Amino acid sequence: MFIRMKKLVIILITILSCNICAKAQDNTSSKRRTTTIKVNPTTLINELDLYLEQELSSKMSLEIGITGIYTDYPDYVLSKRIDIGQKKPNITTEQFVDGIGFGVRAGLRWYIFAPEGTQHASGTYFQPNLFYKRVFYPAEDYVFNNTTYKEDAHKDVYGIQLLLGRQYRRQRLVFDPYIGVGLRAKVYRYDNYTEVDNNMLRKDRGQLVSILPSLHLGVKVGLNLKN
């Protein structure tokens, strides 16, 4: 009886020790997970993109980002200056140039090929991204019969990206070039006034939906917060 109890105690201690070791390894592993802050200098012409990448394992990470938009001039070039037969929103050049807004994005990154000997997520990766942007265009004055009316406009952008890239690490520095394709839907909404017969004014609420494929090429530069 005593021998059986002794064996049972030894088995229980062994199981408990294994659980403690496993938890300790998990805690140690979680402490080694790196967090990286990155910026995309290739989009600075019209917006500031900041990213936070959190390593989940040696093969996977989560990347989230926020965007501050300070001009929408590139969209003016694409939607009005380049004519491929597409419909064009009734938004002026000044509104495009002075448009401001924000954006959010999130994606899961799978590292396909990693450098030998690395303990962190790095190397060649595949990353699907979802993003949303909202751009506010400044209201323009429309004067009619000594009365001023406001012509408002804004734009919502919904999109998905499929990116292929490679992350390079140099101590705490990170270089992240990428290339990819995507699909982007732009929804323009605008209020315009038009003078009609009999000295009357008509308010038109317009909406234009544009769905087009997109190409992506750029590089992100960042810094590891943990070694």
Rank of each mutant, 00 (worst) to 15 (best):
P115S: 07
G182W: 00
G117H: 09
G85T: 01
S17P: 11
I100H: 14
L225M: 06
H216G: 03
E116R: 05
G65Y: 13
L223W: 14
R32Q: 15
K155S: 08
S29I: 05
M60H: 11
K155F: 04
P138A: 00
V187Q: 10
Y149Q: 05
L78Q: 12
L130H: 08
G99M: 07
R172L: 01
Y70R: 04
M1F: 14
V187Y: 03
E151R: 03
D141C: 00
S57E: 07
S61A: 10
V174F: 01
T124A: 14
G222L: 04
V97F: 15
H120N: 15
Y142K: 11
G103N: 02
G99F: 09
V221Y: 05
Y132T: 02
G182Q: 00
R166Q: 11
I211F: 07
V97D: 10
P128K: 00
I3D: 14
K38M: 10
L12C: 14
L130K: 07
Q161A: 07
I37Q: 12
L56G: 07
G159H: 00
Y149M: 05
I112F: 12
I82G: 08
F144A: 01
Y51A: 03
R169S: 07
G68A: 13
R166S: 09
I91F: 08
D72R: 00
T194Q: 11
T35C: 04
L173A: 09
E116M: 02
I20H: 10
I20P: 15
I211H: 01
R81N: 15
Y111E: 12
D197C: 01
Q171M: 07
I211L: 12
I160C: 08
G182F: 02
S210P: 06
S58D: 13
I13R: 12
E195W: 01
